[in-house]
Amino acid sequence: MAGDNGNEELRIGVYVCHCGSNIAGVIDPKVVAEYAAALPGVVRAINTPYACADSGQNLIKEDIKEYNLNRVVVAACSVRMHEPTFRAAVSEAGLNPFLMEMANIREQCTWAHGHDPEGALEKAKDLVAAAVAKARFLVPLQMIKVPVTKRAMVIGGGVAGISAALDLGDQGIETILVEKQPTIGGTMAQLNKTFPTMDCSI
């Protein structure tokens, strides 16, 4: 299953996000997009004010159909931020979500190099090129489905743990509430009345 992604023609779409002024305030996303357009396999490269907004996502979805894209590169924020968003977007347009790659040109570029716009621009181009390079070798993958044991465990019998355990129990889920002390209650049980209503803590 590894490796072979056939000899299909590579059709990469590159989307460079402005993120308002977060990215566009330091570098010109249009320049990055123009740069990306010349990279091998890239058939579509464009800048967009907010890639994560509906308009940006729709642009990507429509382009996938119009340009028959088989890879998408989004140059925007951290994968920890919006990877799920863009995976979902390409997936809705019929592309396997693992054929989307992100280049982090916000947290790890414009935000960190605000003092050095030229350096930031060079770096953004390289990051996009690297994402395009990786995209070339992406293969479609399927999520792995696993069964779910319908039991919960709550570790800690203080006020948060008791609240979680009761809510899980009320949802009909068998729940084990684990407490290392001989009694549940945690810090709260030691308190005199509680603010601001002065009700009893227990």
Binding site: F98, K145, V146, V148, A152, V159, S163, A164, D167, L168
Partner: peptide, 29 residues
């Protein structure tokens, strides 16, 4: 504080419920 802890307990239960009420869960391949 206590109100926030109670609220978070309920919220975590709801988050955990998403997993526990599903018949199967997807993990990254």
């Amino acid at each position: 504080d206590i109100p926030a802890s109670v609220a978070q307990g309920s919220a975590a239960a709801a988050r955990a419920g998403r997993v526990l009420h599903a018949d199967e869960w997807e993990i990254e391949p």
